[in-house]
Design a binder for these strands. Structure first.
Lengths: 415, 415
DNA sequence: GGGGTTAGGAAAGGGGGTTTACGAAGTCTC
DNA sequence: GAGACTTCGTAAACCCCCTTTCCTAACCCC
């Protein structure tokens, strides 16, 4: 609510680094053109990032007859970021370099019984240790760890207020994790992780207003408004999965009827399939992944049942997305998460048609609907991005120390 | 998207004036406390507003044993604002003083045939002339005219891109009006007018995130996000009326089925009534206002049919609002426009219950649902507020003229 | 090797907000 | 009734941010 000039700086810093990561290597000129900032400001920000060793100078580029442009690129060895995706049945941890390439990955399965916070914390700590060891980076180079927990999260205090999977209430997860992990910790939920991943590295980059529709086991919509994530007053904005799509429709685990999630999430799609052909070979009861995979293969093979299920699903999804288009008038709607990735183009095609049928003409004309271009796990990437944002936000505080004691820069930074 | 430090100034100017209007007379101390700004900044902004003659010093207030606080209040004779509400069957124009009190009003009826832009412009020009004459203000004191047109509007160019009522396409309404009206003109649609009215003077004042639900002949949702109006990429955000509430439900004039508008707008409520009791004496076919009035009286008299209709309507409305609560996680949801005002507390009560049944617990707990506290026509008020915002935005440009030629301040300003 | 061209840094300038210092305008106390 | 105390409000100094302008660096071409 309260804006200060410092926020402008932070936003610009984000924007410049985003641009460098996206088009690395690049020149200051190009950055200025892309961001709309003046050359002087870009130069200052690039200087800051060079001081932080997040980027390096990597050579020169010919200019049309004048002094060559200096090129900067992400300093892949300048630090590491860790993203943690805590899900219902597994914990996945990925370690990224600063170009957000995956350097190491660790998966831990969680058995249905393992629902106590300490157990989850144990898995996370083990996996984090594992990726650091695998990647062979010194611990001091890890800039931060972002953690995604499904449910309602207070990102500032690091408390998982409510996680329905394990019936957690007000678990101080970040405090528990900090006993095992010495790096700066950040936390939010997978919905917003995906949204931030799209905002930084995916289809929402450069968009003022975008909606990131998450199709996984759960369903949600990350809202990018005014170039930043909309969190709402208690950090729970984006709960689109429990929007009523069919009044008095299917019963949802939330207690209501007709929620979007009961029609277009992985479990909902399985219901769509079962209602159409209960004995279909595509259906793998108890295994969402296998079913969605089978559907995707069925569509590729022109299986009529699979085609019909995708069309039905797209019909529900299209109606829901049309509502979002009308309501937000976004530049782009991104379909993200594993269900969207698995069903891919055929789903996209049907969804576009369904949205066109339902949305109002004017907002529809201004909106693109696309699949997420992110090839890896978007939740891990987004979680790592929280850590990256955190590392960039703290920059302002260092200027004093840097100026007064430049000689000390060789001193090992406190971990 | 691109933020500059000037935006901060503008936002603070708005905030200070809002606060003065709300709590006039008030002291600088109080303003600083309410806005969170420093005393120095408040003093500067108050000085600007004094220079503009939008406020005046009106005396002193005792302080606890020290120098008395100077009090400032809105200068009601410092200017006038005009709000124009163009609707399907009428044009209403109101003239306000700077405290946003109505000084004069003019209504013009429009016959069904009168759909040509020139005819509408004629009505508006006549009504604007009428209110200026009634109020007896010199023309030079009118700071601006805000115009609300239903439909899709480009507020910058002043073009009504699409107005379904009269089948207008790309009518340059503001250009046409400027031939008859010499004051600065601003334009947007009634949805956003209501939202701005609530943001400045109503229940959304001081809220970072709010949703203004408009229940009139049409239905919409004004989105206040981050303390400002969310417009979307093509200024059409907030089209909530055509959100699918019942898949394959009632046919809507937009061509889809089950839109919110077909259940909770005035025509929708009439359908609810007809479905329940087609021969009810409450029903006045062809007259929305009379029917809604009759319903309100029926509820007051405990008429079972009226109670049931309100409950049914609230059920639809509650489901829809619950979706908004989940999606935006706002601080407050405001029910605005004439249907909400007419049905009042009984509707609110039922809606609250219905929302509580549908919304998720956490976001629900953070959200209040209230009736609009604005007693007059919110569309006119909001339209006038557009003019007020416009007058405040131009402030920065005057400083040079003021400094270099203070002697010229008596020169008549260009109209 | 000088002139033309382009890149990039340094300094100046304009806008914004806050902190600090001080004069202004009261009350309280002796 | 004068001095001490309190509180308000303005002015000045300061920090932050971005942009514009100036100048030097570095390259090309002739």
């Amino acid at each position: 609510m309260k804006r200060t000039s410092r926020d402008i700086r932070t936003a610009n810093r984000y924007e410049v680094l985003r641009q460098i990561i996206a088009t690395s290597p690049t020149s200051r000129q190009e950055l200025a053109a892309a961001t709309g900032l003046s050359l002087a400001t870009v130069a200052t920000l690039v200087g800051e990032l060079l001081d932080l060793r997040m980027i390096t100078e990597v050579g020169f580029e010919d200019s049309a007859g004048g002094r060559p442009r200096g090129l900067v690129a992400v300093n892949t060895s300048g630090g590491a970021l860790i993203g943690v995706d805590i899900a219902e049945t597994y914990v996945r941890v990925e370690l990224f370099d600063l170009a957000l390439n995956v350097l190491a990955r660790a998966d831990e399965d969680m058995r249905p019984g393992e629902s106590r916070p300490e157990q989850v914390v144990g898995h996370v700590a083990a996996a984090v240790g594992s990726v650091v060891a695998q990647a062979g980076v010194e611990g001091a180079r890890v800039l931060g760890v972002g953690v995604s927990v499904p449910g309602q999260v207070d990102r500032d205090s690091g408390v998982a207020e409510y996680a329905p999977n394990w019936d957690w209430h007000d678990v101080p997860l970040l405090d528990l994790l900090s006993e095992h992990i010495a790096y700066p910790l950040y936390m939010d939920n997978p919905l917003r992780a995906c949204a931030v991943a799209e905002l930084w590295f995916g289809a929402a980059r450069g968009s003022g207003d975008a909606v990131v529709v998450n199709l996984g086991t759960g369903v949600g919509a990350g809202l990018v408004l005014g170039g930043g994530l909309h969190r709402g007053v208690s950090n729970s904005a984006g709960e689109w999965g429990h929007t009523t799509l069919v009044l008095d429709g299917r019963l949802c685990h939330c207690g209501n009827h007709g929620c979007v999630e009961t029609y277009v999430g992985a479990p909902g799609i399985m219901v769509n399939l079962r209602e159409l052909a209960a004995d279909s070979a595509l259906l793998h009861p108890e295994d969402q992944t296998a079913t969605i995979d089978a559907l995707a293969r069925g569509v590729a093979a022109h299986d009529p049942v699979a085609l019909k299920v995708v069309r039905d699903t797209a019909r529900y999804l299209g109606a829901g997305i049309a509502d979002l288009v009308n309501l937000f008038n976004p530049e782009v709607v991104v379909l993200s998460s594993w269900v969207a990735a698995t069903l891919g183009e055929p789903l996209l095609h049907e969804v576009r048609e369904a949205v066109a049928r339902h949305a109002l003409r004017r907002p529809l004309a201004a909106t693109q609907i696309v699949l997420s271009p992110i090839p890896t796990d978007p939740v891990c990437l987004g979680a790592a991005t929280f850590a990256l944002e955190g590392a960039l936000q703290a920059v302002g505080l260092r200027t004093v120390a840097k100026r007064t004691t430049p000689a000390r820069s060789r001193t090992a930074p406190p971990s």
